[in-house]
Amino acid sequence: MWADILFWVFAAAVIVLALAVITFKNPVNSAMALVADLFFVAALFVLVDAHFLAVIQILLYAGAVMVLFLFVIMLINQGPDELGRARRTFAKAVALILLFPLALVVLRVVENVSKGGGFLKVPSDYGTIEAVGRLVFGQYLLPFEVASVLLLAAIIGAVAIAKRRLW
């Protein structure tokens, strides 16, 4: 009961804030709306018992990634004339056309779900911290370790091309 009410509140907030992201003229406002949006997505994850995803969503997306966004926005620091000029009618038309097949797929999925099928049944502890931990250190042990090698290679590459003086 309460979970249902909360779901509708959070879901509405997600949609409203997502619209706010693309309608605000000032990019800083858009970024802040995105931060709030990601918080509500995290809340949705909590409602379906995906605790690990919820925490990661806030830490990584609302925290780290959005701070990077804000840094970039402030570094570029575009004034109102640069932001106000472009109308991009053509781009909007293309986006609408591309939206069409996506909408078809979403409709198809919703139709499937309303018939009681479509989505895969998951165990009840799916997405909890314990279940994710078992997967990461069990079945997905090798990908987890390889990801660390990948990150190390990325750091070495970034330092090699960006550090001011290497010797």
């Binding site: 997905y140 090798l142 990908p143 390889v146 990325a154 590459g157 090699a160 091309i161």
Partner: peptide
Amino acid sequence: ADLVMVFLGLETLSIPAYAMAAALR
């Protein structure tokens, strides 16, 4: 043998390559 491994392999292959392309700073 798994799409997750294909993805990680592709990235471990590509990300150093981006830096190698820009090696002449």
